[in-house]
Amino acid sequence: MQTHYPLLETNDFSFEFVTDRGIHYVAYFLEYGYMFSEYPDFSGHTYTFNIDLISDESDIAINDERVGMTIVEIFKVFFSKIENVVVYVCDSMDDRHLARKRKFDSWFWKYNDGTIIKEDGIAVVEDTEILNSLLVHRDNPHLLNIILAYKELNNRADEK
């Protein structure tokens, strides 16, 4: 039975893991409290998530299910504090961002045990669509307000 890759705690602000093929990933969270600054109940627990490559140029959307398991495991650890809120964006540096999002979504729905709620959004910024998602623990006491604030953030993205 497959399991996630071991999470390496090489420093205080990221998770790292290395795949069977030697691909080295780093996953990190940035504090983004000002995203929901008008909502003090949860702004202090708001972060963005990113995952990047250290050692290889291979795309994250590779056919390695253990990578997906590992990403979901990272979220499980992070959301063991149920107040945490995560928003992440899909970069559009190349034409593969839709494929990456589909891969991430498939991993999420496959390996999430229902603990984490996911909402998707599209922010239209200067005529460019920025695909993004909200992750929040299902038991977060501010769940509904967080979702509403997130949707408002997307809806207001194209305001001048």
Binding site: N132, R156, D158
Partner: peptide, 24 residues
């Protein structure tokens, strides 16, 4: 607080992501 311009926030998120990616 930046409570009226979601665009700024999403742009900032992308900029941070790209800058860190390039650095790594």
């Amino acid at each position: 607080p930046i409570n009226s311009k979601g665009a700024l926030i999403f742009k900032k998120m992308l900029e941070d992501k790209k800058a860190i990616h390039e650095y790594l």
